[in-house]
C-alpha cells in the first residue's frame, strides 16, 4: 500500500536530517510570512519605488555572490566528509564560515552607508516628509536583519560542527549544517530581488 511504502521510506531518512528539514520548514514559513507582509504593503504603496532607489544593488549583488560561493564550498565540504578527507573538509568548512564573515562585513558596510544617509529602522528624518516611505526601511532592516542573524547562527553552528568533525567525530553533522546553510542562502535569493532589484 502506498502509505506504507511512504512510511517505510520516511523511516529510512536519518533522524537528524529529518529534524533539520522540519526546522527549515518552520523557518521558511516565518520568512515567507514576512515576505508576504512586505509584498502586501509594497502593492499598496507604489511610492515605495522612490525608497528602493536608495538600496545598494552593488552591496546586495556582492553578498549574493558571497553566499552562493559559500553554498558551493559547503557542498564541497560535505563531499570531502563523505570521502573521509578530513583536511579538505576542514578547509572547505572554514572557507564557508569565512564567506559568512565577509557577508556580515559587507552587510555592516551597507548598513553604515544607509544609516549615514538617514535611513534607519525608524528613519526619523524621513518620517517628517514621507512617513509611509519610512516603513519601507523598517521592512528593509527587519528582513535583512533577521536574515543576517540566521547567517550568524549558521556560522556558529558550522563552527561547532567543525570543532568535532575536524577530529573525525560526528561527520554526518556536516551535511546537517550544510542543509541549514543552504536555507539561509535560499532566503537571501528571495530577499535580494525583492529589496535590491525590484526598483
Amino acid at each position: 500500500m502506498a502509505e506504507q511504502t511512504l512510511s517505510v521510506s520516511l523511516k529510512q531518512v536519518p533522524q537528524g536530517r529529518l529534524g533539520v528539514w522540519l526546522l527549515i520548514v518552520g523557518e521558511l514559513i516565518i520568512f515567507g510570512s514576512l515576505v508576504v507582509c512586505y509584498l502586501l504593503y509594497r502593492l499598496r504603496f507604489p511610492s515605495w519605488v522612490e525608497q528602493t532607489q536608495h538600496t545598494s544593488t552593488f552591496y546586495g549583488g556582492l553578498n549574493t555572490f558571497v553566499l552562493l560561493t559559500s553554498s558551493y564550498t559547503i557542498v564541497k565540504a560535505n563531499d570531502a566528509a563523505l570521502k573521509k578527507d578530513l583536511a579538505k573538509m576542514s578547509r572547505y568548512m572554514l572557507t564557508t564560515i569565512f564567506c559568512g564573515l565577509i557577508f556580515l562585513a559587507v552587510k555592516s558596510t551597507e548598513y553604515a552607508h544607509e544609516i549615514g544617509a538617514g535611513f534607519t529602522l525608524t528613519s526619523p528624518g524621513l518620517q517628517a516628509t514621507n512617513p509611509v516611505g519610512a516603513t519601507f526601511w523598517s521592512f528593509y532592516y527587519i528582513m535583512t536583519g533577521l536574515h543576517a542573524t540566521h547567517v550568524l547562527a549558521g556560522m556558529v553552528t558550522l563552527f561547532v560542527v567543525w570543532l568535532d568533525a575536524r577530529k573525525g567525530r560526528n561527520i554526518h553533522r556536516v551535511e546537517l549544517g550544510g542543509l541549514y546553510w543552504h536555507m539561509v542562502d535560499l532566503i537571501w535569493i528571495f530577499l535580494f530581488p525583492l529589496l535590491y532589484i525590484a526598483k
Binding site: G26, I30, S33, C37, L121, T122, L146
Partner: peptide, 21 residues
C-alpha cells in the same frame, strides 16, 4: 505559528523601537 512569529517581531519593534508596521 510562523506568521505570528513574524507579526510578533514587528509588534515588538513597534513597541520598543517605534517603527510603524
Amino acid at each position: 505559528v510562523g506568521p505570528l512569529v513574524a507579526g510578533a517581531v514587528m509588534l515588538l519593534l513597534d513597541n520598543v523601537v517605534g517603527t510603524g508596521f
